[in-house]
């Protein structure tokens, strides 16, 4: 078990102008091989022009159990959305 290659999360930019997007993970002993494995596994049909790999154990994530408390402050601030404001018909397209 201890001999298992570490896990890397893979993020791919599909084309210039788009964000890198998480697409899966690979096991690899180091960053160079992780990049090569990610290319072989996730871009066999030109799905990407750029790859990021990140050691899975280096990612800090929010806790889904705290989801409600963590994101709650945003819920009652509807004035942050443009649709909150009723404007006269003539200018309502802004």
């Amino acid at each position: 078990m201890s001999n298992e290659w570490p896990l890397w999360e893979v993020f791919i930019r599909a084309k210039a102008g788009l964000d890198h997007k998480h697409c899966g993970s690979v096991h690899a002993p180091d960053a160079t091989m992780a990049l090569q494995a990610a290319r072989d596994v996730y871009t066999r049909r030109q799905e990407g022009v750029s790859i990021w790999v990140v050691r899975a154990d280096q990612i800090v994530a929010s806790d889904p159990g705290d989801k409600h408390e963590f994101f709650d402050p945003m819920q009652d601030k509807i004035y942050r959305h443009p649709t909150f404001y009723q404007l006269p018909e003539e200018v309502n397209h802004i």
């Binding site: 078990m1 001999n3 298992e4 899966g24 993970s25 690979v26 596994v41």
Partner: peptide, 16 residues
Amino acid sequence: LYLYAAAETLGVSRDE
């Protein structure tokens, strides 16, 4: 490999 990676998210290792 896509599928092993998906299974591993459930807390089982590739070796297992």
